[in-house]
Nucleic acid binder design. Sequence first.
DNA 1: CTAAAAGTCTATAGATTTAGTAGTCTTTAG
DNA 2: CTAAAGACTACTAAATCTATAGACTTTTAG
Lengths: 148, 148
Amino acid sequence: MKLSTKGRYGLRAILDIALNQNTGPVTIHSIAQRQEISDRYLEQLLTSLRKNGLIKSIRGFQGGYILNKEPQDITVGDVIRALEGPIAPVECVDDNRQGLCSRMELCVTRKVWEDLRKTMNEVLDSYTLEDLVRESQKPKEFVYDYCI
Amino acid sequence: MKLSTKGRYGLRAILDIALNQNTGPVTIHSIAQRQEISDRYLEQLLTSLRKNGLIKSIRGFQGGYILNKEPQDITVGDVIRALEGPIAPVECVDDNRQGLCSRMELCVTRKVWEDLRKTMNEVLDSYTLEDLVRESQKPKEFVYDYCI
DNA sequence: CTAAAAGTCTATAGATTTAGTAGTCTTTAG
DNA sequence: CTAAAGACTACTAAATCTATAGACTTTTAG
């Protein structure tokens, strides 16, 4: 039940764009340096975010990435789903539920998984990029409080 | 963000024990047949459940497994944690949080992960084995409603 | 027009985790 | 003693994750 690096790195990356796009498109390379992620791996994550309409690319000289929506219209859930697919603890409660359950027993536990799926999505959709931007602009002393 | 087969099979297995222990210890082999899981793999799952005090084994002739607590005192969360370890979307919000975050940026997203971790555990702990037993004893027509 | 900066696409490889198998040993009722 | 049943340890095949690499396209400054 862990997020992979895709989701974690990708969220940091799009937050980095939100924080730095005021001075023009943000390059892969600059994000990679600030976030300590390889350029090449980061490229794949940004491709997923772009194909899901969360960011857009500006090609050519002085290109880079900028958000494709307002920060308050992008939720953490949107980002994670773009990078990791549907957020669901088991296949049979995915949005695109191909594998309809063949076992009766599963149905008993299905209620639990469905409840969990719903709640996970609600929590992740309750945070927007704007929330995180605001949080990251708080004075450092305050931020340190979360860091033990 | 998917459960592995350990969690899914293991929950089915302990539910199977709850449903069948009234006629004495339930053998690995009988669970394996009903649940269509290999005896050998199932053995490992039951070992985890036993070491976490959720079931107990009776060795020797006519042995098998029975619950080590009342069904209402075993939550789905207990079962999943026994089989898959702490339920947390990222390492840094695990109960045994070894990897304290070294990056400031993580702290911004940490609040989200912590909220998610808490909620996931609450949902899974809100269902007990007794709930599932009761659910699985409802008439089939009713159960079918959840299937599709 | 051309060079350099920047993104795009597809394939591949190494590492890790998952899922399952196998062999050998121990316990216990009858 | 013996057969049924669990216990322990090691191993392996497959899948997934985490990148890395190479060749290509777009854009603009000069």
